[in-house]
Every structure is written in C-alpha cells, then in structure tokens.
Design a protein around this nucleic acid. Sequence first.
DNA 1: ACATCTGTTATACAATCAGTATAACAAACA
DNA 2: TGTTTGTTATACTGATTGTATAACAGATGT
Lengths: 121, 121
Amino acid sequence: MLIEIDFNSSEAIYMQLRNQIILGIATSQLQEGDSLPSVRQLAEHIGINMHTVNKAYTVLKQEGFLKLDRRKGAVIALDIDKLQAVETMRRELQVMLAWGRCKNISREEVHQLIDEIYEDY
Amino acid sequence: MLIEIDFNSSEAIYMQLRNQIILGIATSQLQEGDSLPSVRQLAEHIGINMHTVNKAYTVLKQEGFLKLDRRKGAVIALDIDKLQAVETMRRELQVMLAWGRCKNISREEVHQLIDEIYEDY
DNA sequence: ACATCTGTTATACAATCAGTATAACAAACA
DNA sequence: TGTTTGTTATACTGATTGTATAACAGATGT
C-alpha cells in the first residue's frame, strides 16, 4: 500500500498517516490480520520520526483498527462498536451538513456525493 | 441564539463557537444581515477572552460566513463558492465514509443518517 | 549464546497552537 | 467628548507536534 505525506499540509503528519491507513482498510487494501511495517521501518521509509508513526499507530489502536503485538508488529484488528460509531458519525455529519447547507449544498447533492465516493469501493 | 461552550471538551473553544454559529445559520436562527454580538460582549457573556471570540469570527470571515464591519459589527454575510465547497465536502466525506465503512456502517445507513439530520431543518 | 528487531517508555528540545491578559489605535457613534 | 467598535501588537502559560537519543524486555534468527 502506497503512503504519501504532504509536508506542506496543515494537517498533522500522524493524522495524515492515520487517515490513509483507514482509507486502506476501507478499500480492502489492508485486511484483518494484515501486518503493517514496524514503526521504525515505516518511519524510515517515509522520512519521518519513529515516534510520529508510533503516535498514528497508537491512535489507530485507540480507535479500534489495530492491535500492537510485540511478536507480529502492528496488525489490522477491527474492534467494532457500531452504536458508538453511528453516534460519532452523526455528530460529525451534523456540523458538516450545516456547513454545506450554508453553502447551498442540498440534501440530494450530499446523497449524490456519497454515492460517488462509494463508487470507488 | 443560545451559545454553549463545553470547557471540558478537547475541541478548541474558538472551533466550538465557530461550529455553533454555522449551525445557527443552517437552521435560519441567524440570517443574512443579522448582527452578532461584538467580540467583547460575547467574550464577557461566555466568560472567555476577547481574542478567542475574535479568532472564531476571523475563521468564519475567512470561510465566507461573516463580514466584519466597524460600523455594524460582525454581520452574517454568505459568500458562496459552491464548486469549491463541494470539493471541500467531498474530501472530508471521503475520510469519514472510510472510517464508517471500517465500522460496518453501510451506504444506506449513511443516507438514512443524513435524512435524519435533515429532519431537524 | 548472540545479535537483531520488536513495541514501549522516558526524556529533552524546538516550533507551533490555544487561550489569556493588557494595551493601544482609528473609525463610528451618541 | 466619551464610549464602543474592529484591529493590531506584545507577552505569557500550557498543550500539541515533530524530532532526537536512549534504554528496556520480549521475540526472532543464526
């Protein structure tokens, strides 16, 4: 899986990394049981510090996407609390939809946008 | 319009403020031409520093929701670049949907969630 | 047995951000 | 003439981000 970091972005590096790994899982490029590079390997490959990768992994572990095993390294392991997840998404969507509504983006257009994004799965 | 700040939240105060004002515009509690309290008034009312309110106002101005006029104070003034807005929303939705997909949230459930949120408008 | 790699933890440093605080300015207003 | 407005500047504390170096114990391979 290809990982690209935009060092000019205002988004924190560890969050860019976290997002791309989530994208990878969603698109099945990464699957349950797959191993990620060690924090040291990935850090060197990208050209960033070990602790920055470690922070991304720690966040992903906290969010229920990874298990960190000393034997197998970082392994994709999905811990799904769906009710919790739906509520989290509802809260984030609420602000995003309000923002879009102020920009004259209609409900139908949001639906269409979602279908377009799902086309890539 | 009622504004409530959660001081225990990890979300920055100026972002909570920004979000609530956007919510207010989306629900028509705030309309084009309406004036917001001055940075000093609102700061005192909430119990935070003037510059924190000023930052929220500055962000909202930057995002095309407010005009800051020395005569009329902070005035709701919507500057809509829809193409730009749709692309911004698409990028944010992409990460959010990937996240939800990892949590077994289906496309249909997202659609339903959106309709539920739109019920309140 | 030995060296290597793993996740993990600790500490330290610089840069930036968040929030507060005080102050000053010119324009607007009553 | 005061007062309030947005705006700008400076300064301080504390948290966050990213880098850097180091150490530790468990696991792995030779």
